[in-house]
Design a protein around this nucleic acid. Structure first.
Length: 326
DNA sequence: TACCATTCTGAATCGTGTAT
DNA sequence: ATACACGATTCAGAATGGTA
């Protein structure tokens, strides 16, 4: 079979035959993601956009089926909201194993398919091919976002215990995927290029695509600031044992703001987002009021529309926290 | 007051032990 | 094997205190 331009795109081809003829198809591709991939919805959506661009270059009327593994509803809705709908798409939970053309958000135009048009796609990522364990891969993926980090930060963001993370880090180091490095005052870990490229492959990012600007934390934050927000998940879990955290990302874009950290989980039946702002207390009250009321309004609007709760949380010097309820 | 040594504290690491 | 708990250790910076 000939290379028809898709050999670097790790998707599945799942055509629909609308006319019971094998030369007329709806040209559907399938992409699968999971909430536990270590990427916030925004970054996953950018990967999808990049894939769509590739599809548009080589196919006439492509369509994309995105299968999302995630508890609750928020993650899936975020993906749907954040992707650019340049071609017909549908975003479905993983339990949906086959798809109907009516479930796409735009109608799909049929394609006349010739023998040479049957796509040759890149293999989708399988951890076994790379000889990494699921748990180690999770640490690697989180580190790929952070670039450099301390162990407690990785433990917090992965949800693993510190000693478990320690073992996993040793394994990753033995495979030259990461290295120890001095970060500020203490020794921490940094991801190496080999590790970075494995993380990219694991997210099924097409080779040759520029993803780095979407991969990492969205803003630069100071040392102290960063440590607090990265360890927030662990803090939350300890302080509120009755809530379940599904995932946590630092500096991930959400609505119009960028929380310092965003944790997502549930308490009982209620799906909740925990929005963290770490405030140094360097700016004046007036500036703060302006900053926060805007973000808060925005977050509130979205929460209402999606029917989930947002807990807005500020950490800072006592006077900042006291001021905040007003 | 200026200087130096000591103690205290917080943050990060490592080693070991235990339960499943 | 994997997950987790706990104490010991190391390090840097802040606080304390003594002495010329």
């Amino acid at each position: 079979m000939t290379d028809n331009g898709l050999s670097r795109l790790p998707l599945e081809w799942t055509p629909i035959y609308p006319l019971q003829r094998n030369d007329v198809v709806l040209d559907v591709f399938k992409h699968s993601i999971s909430y536990s991939d270590g990427l916030p919805p925004y970054a996953q959506a950018r990967i999808i956009d990049l894939m769509v661009n590739r599809l548009l270059k080589t196919r006439r009327y492509p369509a994309l089926w995105i299968s999302v593994e995630a508890p609750g509803d928020w993650f899936r809705h975020e993906i749907k909201r954040l992707i650019k709908h340049k071609i017909p798409m549908t975003v479905q939970p993983t339990k949906k194993t086959c798809i109907n053309e009516r479930e796409f958000y735009q109608p799909i135009r049929p394609t006349y398919l010739q023998e040479r048009d049957v796509p040759v796609l890149a293999p989708r990522f399988d951890p076994l091919d790379y000889g990494v364990k699921e748990a180690a891969l999770r640490v690697l993926r989180v580190l790929a976002r952070l670039k450099t980090a301390y162990r407690p930060e990785l433990a917090s963001l992965t949800g693993f215990s510190e000693s478990h993370v320690r073992n996993l880090l040793k394994q990753l180091q033995a495979e030259n995927l990461i290295e120890r490095r001095q970060i500020g005052k203490y020794e921490g870990y940094a991801i190496r290029n080999k590790g970075l490229s494995m993380a990219h492959r694991s997210w099924n990012i097409p080779k040759g695509v520029h993803f780095s600007k979407y991969r990492g934390e969205f803003r630069y934050a100071g040392e102290r600031h960063r440590r607090v927000s990265r360890r927030w998940r662990a803090w939350l879990e300890k302080a509120y044992p009755n809530i379940e955290i599904w995932e946590c990302w630092t500096e991930a874009p959400l609505f119009d703001g960028i929380p310092d950290a965003l944790a997502w989980g549930r308490k009982g039946e209620y799906e909740i987002l925990f929005w963290l702002e770490v405030d140094s207390g360097h700016s004046s009250e007036k500036v703060m009021r302006c900053n926060y009321s805007h973000r808060f309004q925005n977050a509130y609007q979205h929460a209402k529309r999606l029917g989930l709760s947002i807990v807005f949380c500020v950490m800072g010097p006592p006077w900042v926290v006291r001021f905040f309820p007003s």
